[in-house]
């Protein structure tokens, strides 16, 4: 609970789950959700380093805030891409988006 390793392992596990989700889901929204998990894992890492290592405990918090900003931007863009793709393919199944197949 009060060790850096705990938090780092939690974050690593969360990140791996996110990766698994990104690879395995066929729906773009599912992938987006998994990506949010990965971003959160990164946030946990920052906060953990902030608590246990950093000279100035403000920096990690600011990073985390920015990650949230990035996540918001990413969600907005991703959702609009999903909408555009849906208009084109009538589906949000990533396996149908194969127009560049060689």
């Amino acid at each position: 609970m009060s060790s850096l390793y705990t938090y780092l392992f939690i974050a690593a596990l969360l990140f791996s789950l996110g990766i698994f989700g990104v690879f395995q889901r066929r729906s773009l929204i599912g992938m987006l959700i998994a990506i949010e998990l990965m971003l959160n894992a990164a946030s946990i890492n920052f906060m953990a380093f902030n608590k246990f290592l950093a000279p100035d405990p403000i920096v990690g918090q600011i990073y985390t805030l920015f990650i949230m900003g990035i996540a918001a931007a990413e969600a907005a863009i991703a959702l609009s891409i999903i909408v555009a793709l849906f208009r084109r393919l009538r589906s949000i199944n990533i396996e149908r988006a194969q127009e560049l197949r060689g």
Partner: peptide
């Protein structure tokens, strides 16, 4: 010849990357 490698599957590409 190499274009066969591009399956158009985004997730497989990602998997290979990771």
């Amino acid at each position: 010849a190499l274009s066969f490698l591009q399956s158009g599957m985004l997730q497989y590409n990602l998997m290979v990357m990771f």
